[in-house]
Structure formats: C-alpha cells, structure tokens
Design a protein around this nucleic acid. Sequence first.
RNA 1: CGGGGCGUAGCGCAGCCUGGUAGCGCACCUGCCUUGGGCGCAGGGGGUCGGAAGUUCGAAUCUUCUCGCCCCGACCA
Length: 575
Amino acid sequence: MLWSKTLIPTLKEDPADAEVISHKLLVRAGFIKQVSRGVYDYFPLALRVIRKIEQIVREEMNRAGAQELLMPISAPAELWQESGRWEMYGKELLRFKDRNERDFCLGPTHEEIVTDLVRRSVRSYRELPFNLYQIQTKFRDEPRPRFGLMRGREFIMKDAYSFHTDVEDCRREYDNMVQTYKRIFTRCGLSFRPVEADTGAIGGNQSHEFQVLAESGEDAIVSCNTCDYAANVEKAEVRAARPAGRDIAEESPQLEKVSTPGKKSVAEVAEYLKLPVERFIKTLVFKTDSGEFVAALVRGDHEINDLKLRAVLGAREIALADEASVAAAAGAMPGFLGPIGLKLRMIADLSVHGMRAAVTGANEADAHFIQVDQERDFTPSAFADLRLAVSGDPCPRCDSGTLETHRGIEVGQVFYLGTKYSVAMGATYLDAEGRERPIEMGCYGIGISRLVAAAIEQNHDANGIIWPFSLAPFQVLLLPINYKDKAIREAADKLYQELQQNGVEVLLDDRDERPGVKFKDADLVGIPLRVTLGAKGLEKGCIELRSRRDSKTEEIPVADSVTKIRAVLTQALQA
RNA sequence: CGGGGCGUAGCGCAGCCUGGUAGCGCACCUGCCUUGGGCGCAGGGGGUCGGAAGUUCGAAUCUUCUCGCCCCGACCA
C-alpha cells in the first residue's frame, strides 16, 4: 500500500485528552479518532491490526472445533426479560424503543440471543456438543469509559458459547478454550497470565481471566511466587493465618476507653494514639438488598472484598450504608464504630479472630477502645474470609509460596455457566432415555479492540509503537529517502513490487517529505521492519534493513533483499 | 450519580481576572531552496471563540442556563 494514498493522520503532539500511552500513541500515529465518549473510528492502520487479531482468533477457534456465526447486535427486551437480566443488568445496557414502541437493547454480550437460537434449533443429545462464536461490535454504556481502546463503550469482541449434555463435557470444553486462549495470546506476542476470576454480571460459577501484564492495567492480580496459583484480587482467597497459639489463662490488660476527638479514619486514630494500623479493627456497616444492616470487621490495614462479603451474606447487592443509616442502625457515627456492644449482625474477617490489645471504635462520638481482646470482649456472628488479598499473603494453594501483586489488562475471560441461562430460557435436549434435560453451557470472550491497546501498552518506546510481527498493520515499511530522486524511486518501486509478489505486507512511504519526517512517522507507527533506500547505499547496490524493536541495522545488497526479508519474517512469525 | 477541570483555526495552546471587535507554535496552500532523523526563506488561506439567553453603547472576556470532553470519586468508619 502507498502511504500517500492511505489516511494516516499522524500528530506531533500528544492529544490533550489521552492519559495512557496506548491511547496517546494510537491517536498520534493515526490509528483511531474519538467520535464520542468511549466510541472511536478505526482508521485503515487500526483496522489492519484488528483484522490480524481476528484472523489469529479465527484460526485458533476453528482449530479448537468452534464454528463462526453472526448474531444481531440488537435484541428484543423479551429475551433479556426471560433471563432476568433486563432488570439486573442496570444502566450499562443501552435500551431503546423501535417505531412501534417495543423495547430493545444493544447487545453487551449474547447469552440470551444464543440460548434462544439454540433452544429453537436443538432437540437431541445427538446434536450436542458444539461451540459457536462470533466477532462483533458490542456496546456497553460504561459508567466511566477511559483510556482509549482499553475501556470503550463500543468495542469489538469475540464471544463464544458452548453447549453440552453434561458438566464433564462442558468442563472439557472449558479446558479446551483455556488452551486455545493461551495459543491465541501467545501468537499475539503478549506476556499474559491466566487468573482465577469472579463471574460478575455474566453469572455462572467458574471463571478465568486472561490478563496482559501492564502497569497501566485496570485490574489488580495476585500470583504465587512458587506454584501456579494466580487470581484477580477480587477473587483471591486468603488463607486463615496460622493459629497464634495463645495461652487461654493469660490475662489481657483491662479494656480502656480513650478520647479520640475528631479522629475517624484508622490512619488518623493510629497517628493520634501512636499505635500501628495492624492493631486496629475496622467496623464497616453495609446494607444488603433485603434491607438488613450488617457490620463487617477487618483489621485496620486490610480492606473488605465486597464480593466475598456479598457471598458470605448470600446477598445479591450490598453497599456501604450512608451516615444517617449507620447512626440509626448502629447507634454511632462512622468513624467511631466498634464491635463491643454493637447490636448488629457482625461478620469478622479470619484475621480478626483472637486479636488482642486491639483498637476499635467505642460506639460513641470521639472515643475508641484500646486493649480490646476479641475472645474476651466480643463475639461476631461468624468468621469468614472477607478481605482483599495483599502482597506477602501466604499462597492459598501451596505451603511455601507467598503472593505478589501485579497490574493486568483483562483481554479474555472464560466462564463455566452451567444451566443458568438454559433453565431460565428453557433450552433443553432429550437424553438417550428420552428425558428432557437443560443444556450445560460455557462462554468465552476476547476483547479484540482492547487487545490492540494492550499490545501497545506492552510494546512501545519513547518514539512510538513497536508492533509484534503477528499484529503489525504491515510487516515492512519501505522508506525512500527522496522519492523524487529517479534512481531511488525506481529501486523503491521495484522492491515494493517484488515484496508484494512474495506475499509480504508492505507499506511504501512515497510521500514528498523530508527524511526526518518520514523517520519520525516510521518510528511512531511502529512497523517492525524498515527498509531505507538512500542514494549512498544504492550506489553500492545496498539497502538498509532495520528492526524497529532493537534498532539493529544491516546493509544488504538489493539483490538479496527479498530473500533476506522473507527469512527474517519467517523466523519472527515462528518465534 | 457527586466533586474538579477544560471547550478559542486540523492539532497543541495564549488571550478572559481588569469588556473595545482574536493571537502564537505546529499543520495546511504558493514559490524558491533543501534532501539520512519533525530543514530554511518569502508570501498566503483558514476561527458562528461549544450553544442559548442576559447585562452593556460594545461580550471570547461578566452573569445564568445548557451541551460536550477529561480527571478524581462513587466502599474503608
């Protein structure tokens, strides 16, 4: 392709509204432009990258036995009402009415549509199992889209759904997809990690996310430094600390109430009393969807994992109670709450068990208790794993490991769904005995457009993007120093033709620009191989081949150039 | 949804406080020059100052409303 005929509006300066590097570079290098909040145009270079990713995904999904189809982007409300998600999904679901005032939504995901499709098409166990996938634009009206392609409202996704007669077969396919995803992300040239994950709004009861490791990632993940345990912090289990081994007969110092005027947060009180935050017990009051107020207790240096709390409470929704509700329900203001004398149901984190010489609120204004002894002074309704895992926690799976934390960009997620949708929507089959049974389901997503951003977060330098060979919009950039020079132009045109005839994806910078401009743009756009054609080299019959990633440069004879470039590409794409 | 910030030429910004009829850099166009890392010189085009209403002789500038975009928060007692 000719640069002069391609829309590549590069910018010298960072766009004012971009925060993360992938967003800045995608805009600066002429790949995307924002149309509205979280919605972007994909310019020709971006589309080529997307097509590359799609192709890898297609090849691997097909190889794994899945079949591609295409479902509608809009869905009638009735299907979402059947699954119950019309009410549950909230404002992220973009809803609208057609001309006849019928409710519709734009699909943020397609469990309802695909389940409907399958229930109308499948009767017998003989027709199962199968796995259907599509690559399509999705719309989620995110509360806060940001970071360019990393969290858009409109985005391109590969979503797959598998259907099975039984749990074992569904789990087999789940594993098949995990392996497939590993191949896909490896082929994309990314450093990633599969982690255990919460199932969120999709539902189901087993899930892994595929996280591309990057500092700018929105997700926090933990991984064991010894075994292969890794999880999203939302999901990470925390093992009960080993029992401290305490002497029951030993007396604790007497409980004491101290004045802490205006000191509300753990940090403030700790500073004021000159006591370490680990000695504190935080008391947080949550309201459940059934209207109950519940106190959750965690150590001062820990944080509540509300997914865990929600699960322990068996609640559908929980939220921190506002000040007025807390005052009414607990009889004290936030900041001075404590378990002693509290009339609410209390769930305490495992680490609170057996704490001594602890500090808690005194359930009255401007006062805290010190020398609190959990076993002596209060008894929670239950102890449970409530807190977020932190760096340094012991691994929940192996004996010797400890957890370390990383940031990640979630580019894929696999779910074992079970029969949640098939039961709700009546997707059943007849087994060999003629009994009607619900279909077991799994679902598997990959954020195609997010992957573009993730790849850049992981592959860039001060000058611009460095595309992995497998994702690059072009494999080779031909850069004639002066395209108006006859000898250079003829050499460039000839090489351009030959490379194309040899199946190499090549972009020729045929613009009448100064060399400096072309070099800067070349680095910015990030095509992995650059061939520079200059007068000096051509006099010797040579061109210059340069790697974008490591800047390694070699002069090679024009006559060998096609062979050499093909060899480099072959090697790079195999690696 | 709460808080903050910003909307002035394609991009990045100044001007606003203290009202007087819009400017800088880059980009763009023309010519000359130059050609291995965002050249040089000369000339030139382009803006309903996000929108609406108000105050005023006069509004980019002051007031009100509104729309858009960005950031932070929307759990830590």
